[in-house]
Amino acid sequence: MDALLTEGGTVLAAFWMTVRLTAVSALGSLVLGTLLTAMRVAPLGSLRAAATAYVTVARNTPLTLVLLFTGLGLGANLGLELSDDIATNNFWLAVIGLTAYTSAFVCEALRSGLNTVPVGQAEAARSLGLGFVRTLALITLPQAFRAVVAPLGSILIALTKNTTIALVVGVAEASVRMRELVETYGDQVIEIFLGFAAGFVLLCLPMGLAFGWLSKRMAVTR
């Protein structure tokens, strides 16, 4: 336990990075995922095709590949600079990769949520004179969100754990710190490992509980 205690500050800082990566990517994925869902049910065939193609590619590519692409492809090769500070730049590259990947799953969850909304809801909205976008924004998507709170929770938990792959872009999140500690304190590998595992459980467990509670509370009664 010595290693975790003496390095407590840096471990917490690393977990704080994990939390930031998760929070920002979750927000981005929610926005992009919602947009993709809207595109997938749009009356325009080209929008539907574009969204379907995107989701298919993003969902079926390993996250490590996606993050290597944002790091090496977008960052190193294409020279995308989001900040002068290299750490901040890497952070945003990781956010782009995590968002690009996770939004595909958010889209699929939301789309299945849309399928639980009876067709009469959209018909009633259209008969009031609401167009496609407002029918989606006011009537069908809000009900779809409420139907998929639990699966969105699972996606958030997966995202939290997936942030560990941001190490390939050079973001100093929890798993990077763990590897450093393991190298420095070779005699305490098991303790270090268990400590970081407990850290992730502490992060993810409340999410699961909160989303379970929310999903009951938000459920639409018909």
């Binding site: 009876p118 009469g120 809801q121 018909e123 009633a124 909205a125 259209r126 008969s127 009031l128 004179g129 609401l130 167009g131 006011l138 009537i139 809000p142 009900q143 409420r146 639409v220 009664t221 018909r222």
Partner: peptide
Amino acid sequence: LARLRAEVGMVFQSFNLFAHKTVLDNVVLG
């Protein structure tokens, strides 16, 4: 089309009230 639909009310067999909105909001929304 949306504009013309707004001028013709529709009442459905299965009511189709917006399930996530209160009764009042159902009548206010449009």
